[in-house]
Protein backbone atom coordinates (compact mmCIF):
# COMPACT_ATOMS: atom_id res chain seq x y z
CA UNK A 1 0.00 0.00 0.00
CA UNK A 2 1.30 3.47 -0.86
CA UNK A 3 -0.22 6.62 0.63
CA UNK A 4 0.44 10.33 0.30
CA UNK A 5 -0.07 13.09 2.87
CA UNK A 6 -3.77 13.67 3.39
CA UNK A 7 -4.68 10.09 2.48
CA UNK A 8 -5.72 7.46 4.99
CA UNK A 9 -6.50 3.79 5.44
CA UNK A 10 -8.51 1.76 7.93
CA UNK A 11 -7.85 -1.35 10.01
CA UNK A 12 -11.06 -3.21 10.81
CA UNK A 13 -14.15 -1.11 11.45
CA UNK A 14 -12.88 1.13 14.22
CA UNK A 15 -9.37 2.24 13.34
CA UNK A 16 -8.39 4.87 10.81
CA UNK A 17 -4.85 6.01 10.16
CA UNK A 18 -4.16 9.17 8.20
CA UNK A 19 -0.83 10.33 6.83
CA UNK A 20 -0.81 13.96 7.95
CA UNK A 21 2.62 15.10 6.88
CA UNK A 22 5.73 13.70 5.24
CA UNK A 23 8.93 15.65 5.87
CA UNK A 24 12.26 14.08 4.95
CA UNK A 25 12.54 10.78 6.82
CA UNK A 26 9.72 11.57 9.25
CA UNK A 27 6.06 10.82 8.80
CA UNK A 28 3.35 12.37 10.96
CA UNK A 29 0.35 10.08 11.45
CA UNK A 30 -3.12 10.77 12.78
CA UNK A 31 -4.84 7.80 14.43
CA UNK A 32 -8.56 7.53 15.08
CA UNK A 33 -9.36 4.59 17.36
CA UNK A 34 -11.67 3.69 20.28
CA UNK A 35 -10.66 5.20 23.65
CA UNK A 36 -10.11 1.73 25.06
CA UNK A 37 -7.20 1.16 22.68
CA UNK A 38 -3.77 2.02 24.00
CA UNK A 39 -1.59 3.54 21.28
CA UNK A 40 2.12 3.72 22.09
CA UNK A 41 5.39 3.84 20.17
CA UNK A 42 6.87 0.36 19.78
CA UNK A 43 9.98 1.40 21.75
CA UNK A 44 7.73 2.42 24.65
CA UNK A 45 6.07 -0.98 24.65
CA UNK A 46 9.45 -2.76 24.57
CA UNK A 47 10.68 -0.56 27.43
CA UNK A 48 7.58 -1.28 29.50
CA UNK A 49 7.98 -5.06 29.07
CA UNK A 50 11.73 -4.90 29.68
CA UNK A 51 11.25 -2.83 32.86
CA UNK A 52 8.81 -5.36 34.25
CA UNK A 53 11.10 -8.35 33.62
CA UNK A 54 14.21 -6.44 34.77
CA UNK A 55 12.53 -5.48 38.06
CA UNK A 56 11.80 -9.17 38.64
CA UNK A 57 15.42 -10.15 37.97
CA UNK A 58 16.81 -8.55 41.14
CA UNK A 59 18.05 -11.45 43.18
CA UNK A 60 20.95 -11.07 45.65
CA UNK A 61 22.75 -14.10 44.22
CA UNK A 62 22.39 -12.92 40.62
CA UNK A 63 23.66 -9.46 41.61
CA UNK A 64 26.72 -10.88 43.41
CA UNK A 65 27.49 -13.05 40.39
CA UNK A 66 27.09 -10.11 38.02
CA UNK A 67 29.41 -7.88 40.09
CA UNK A 68 32.00 -10.65 40.14
CA UNK A 69 31.83 -11.07 36.35
CA UNK A 70 31.97 -7.31 35.73
CA UNK A 71 35.15 -6.97 37.79
CA UNK A 72 36.77 -10.01 36.18
CA UNK A 73 35.93 -8.52 32.78
CA UNK A 74 37.52 -5.18 33.74
CA UNK A 75 40.74 -6.97 34.62
CA UNK A 76 40.80 -8.79 31.29
CA UNK A 77 40.09 -5.74 29.13
CA UNK A 78 42.49 -2.95 30.06
Amino acid sequence: MKRRAGESFTIGDDIEIEVLEVAGTRVKLGIRAPDSMLIVRKEARITREENITAARSLDPEAVADLVHRLWRQTKITP
Partner: peptide, 15 residues
Protein backbone atom coordinates in the same frame (compact mmCIF):
# COMPACT_ATOMS: atom_id res chain seq x y z
CA UNK B 1 18.43 -0.63 33.68
CA UNK B 2 20.02 -4.07 33.98
CA UNK B 3 18.32 -7.41 33.52
CA UNK B 4 20.37 -9.76 35.69
CA UNK B 5 19.48 -12.71 33.47
CA UNK B 6 17.28 -15.74 33.95
CA UNK B 7 16.67 -19.15 32.50
CA UNK B 8 14.87 -17.74 29.45
CA UNK B 9 17.39 -15.02 28.74
CA UNK B 10 21.00 -16.13 28.50
CA UNK B 11 23.18 -13.45 30.03
CA UNK B 12 22.86 -10.19 31.91
CA UNK B 13 21.88 -7.30 29.63
CA UNK B 14 21.48 -3.55 29.88
CA UNK B 15 18.69 -1.53 28.27
Amino acid sequence: IVHAGDSEQAGPTAN
